[in-house]
């Protein structure tokens, strides 16, 4: 009943979303920390840049990323110099594009979570012999845990749901860049509505259950925090 092509698209999507989520947590944490604490004039411009993917049409973002990662673009020059070739129409290229595309969905929950931590607690931890990293792991991480969970879930789900950016920079290469959303598009183009229904239904159910769990968890976290 389940086509090999559909299965391959699902596995690829999960792989992409997982890699992107891990990378995003690593990249977004310092950005969110800086945004939550800085008084620099650079804060509004940086916030605006991070939030751009929320409002930009994916085709615009995808277009610029395609140009940047191409052989004459700044990113492309770097990857060529490193002997990695160019990134468009590769899985790596998709990862890079997805990181930009989903960045705001990870940065914003983290920024809110960091901002909600009383700064005095870190001073208190310092007077109790905790160094900077120790303070992060023993105070910030546990207190910002709901923020990290929200950020990871939204980053993952949003990456699963991307379409336009993938099409622009990844194309439609089976097993490499053909993720679920693109596969659905192909099925519809080929009038294979049954196959499309199958995948679309899975995505719908996945997204609903994910958001349901997230909101249920956040509700519990707020109740516990009282």
């Amino acid at each position: 009943m389940f086509g090999a092509e559909n299965l391959s698209a699902i596995l690829l999507t999960i792989k992409l979303a997982s890699v992107v989520t891990v990378l995003l947590l690593l990249i977004a944490t310092p950005i969110a920390w800086w945004l939550a604490h800085t008084r620099s004039w650079l804060k509004p411009p940086v916030e605006a840049v991070v939030a751009l993917p929320i409002v930009l049409p994916p085709s615009v973002l995808g277009f610029y990323l395609l140009v940047a990662m191409g052989p004459n673009g700044p990113l492309g020059q770097v990857t060529l110099a490193l002997g990695l070739g160019t990134l468009p129409f590769t899985f790596t290229g998709l990862v890079v594009a997805s990181v930009f595309y989903s960045l705001p969905f990870v940065v914003q929950p983290l920024q809110n979570a960091f901002g909600a931590i009383t700064p005095g607690l870190l001073d208190a931890a310092a007077t109790l012999r905790a160094g900077p990293w120790d303070r992060f792991f023993s105070v910030v991480l546990p207190l910002a845990r709901p923020g990290f969970i929200t950020a990871a879930v939204l980053g993952f789900a949003h990456t699963v749901g991307e379409f336009g950016v993938v099409l622009m920079v990844g194309g439609n290469i089976p097993g490499q860049t053909r993720v679920v959303s693109v596969q659905i598009y192909d099925h519809v183009e080929a009038l294979e509505y049954g196959q499309a229904h199958e995948l679309a239904g899975i995505l719908l159910a996945f997204s609903f259950v994910t958001l349901l769990l997230l909101y249920a968890f956040n509700r519990r976290a707020t109740i516990l925090a009282r």
């Binding site: 607690l121 208190a124 931890a125 310092a126 007077t127 105070v139 207190l143």
Partner: peptide, 20 residues
């Protein structure tokens, strides 16, 4: 010497207990 290496104790006006 950074704060965490100074052999001191500090009591703040607000207790600043770790809520977790």
């Amino acid at each position: 010497v950074p704060t965490h290496r100074r052999p001191l104790g500090y009591v703040f006006q607000d207790a600043r207990l770790f809520p977790h």
